[in-house]
């Protein structure tokens, strides 16, 4: 009973607080899952412009980026939010990995240093989020500790979560694996690059922010 009353008060304060500030939707996930590609897809769909640069080299996004006042409309509904694209969260960063991708030593070391700061910044921003979209590469093993840590932190902070299994256009894509790894969540399979299944994604977003 006490818990129900406490949850009700929490929600009430959250609603009052949310009424005063802009809604923030964060894109979180491991590096190269497609967060920035999804950010660009959303901004292209609704603002007609791009938000972030994308690259095949991991840790392209090394600073949190915010696109203000993105308005999404779907089936007569409308929501306006600030879209937050965050650096990929990793437990290790080795500059030598960037050398293999063609960067020189100076560039690789700089990228590694910036990437470590980016991970810390992304984690610090978690507390500011109202809804988080966890963007996972559906061609990769979803049972990584980084994925589990991100989702665990969102649950602990009572932040609503949308899990996206990205890159469904690729042959090795496996949405079922992602669903099996996170059975308590609805998983939306999309291709941010090709713009596939975005309607379902926006619908999931509406369900979380209402």
């Amino acid at each position: 009973m006490i818990r129900i009353i406490r949850d009700f008060i929490d929600r009430l304060f959250l609603q009052i607080f949310k009424g005063r500030k802009d809604l923030k939707i964060g894109l979180y996930g491991p590096p190269n899952g497609g967060k920035s590609t999804l950010a660009n897809r959303i901004c292209n769909d609704w603002l007609g412009e791009e938000m972030s640069t994308v690259s095949k080299i991991p840790h392209e996004t090394r600073e949190v980026k915010v696109k203000e006042k993105v308005t999404v409309r779907s089936k007569g509904k409308e929501v306006t939010f600030n879209l937050v694209d965050t650096p990929g969260i990793a437990t290790k960063i080795d500059y030598e990995d960037f050398l293999k991708k063609g960067l020189n030593v100076k560039e690789a070391k700089k990228r590694a240093k910036e990437a470590t700061k980016g991970v810390i910044e992304a984690i610090k921003w978690l507390d500011d989020m109202d809804v988080v979209v966890v963007v996972l590469d559906s061609t990769e093993n979803p049972y990584s500790q980084v994925n589990i840590t991100i989702v665990g932190n969102l649950v602990a902070r009572k932040i609503p979560v949308v899990i996206v299994a990205n890159k469904i256009d690729k042959k090795r894509s496996g949405i079922k694996k992602v669903e099996a790894a996170f059975p308590q969540y609805d998983v939306v399979g999309i291709s941010a690059l090709k713009g596939r299944n975005m309607e379902e994604f926006y619908e999931s977003l509406f369900n979380m922010v209402r």
């Binding site: 437990t91 290790k92 070391k109 590694a112 470590t116 991970v119 978690l126």
Partner: peptide, 20 residues
């Protein structure tokens, strides 16, 4: 766990530590 990741990131680049 998230604090562990933060502390790990703070210590990377020091004495050949590359993370966990």
């Amino acid at each position: 766990e998230s604090t562990l990741i933060e502390r790990t990131m703070e210590q990377i680049n020091r004495s050949n530590f590359k993370g966990i």
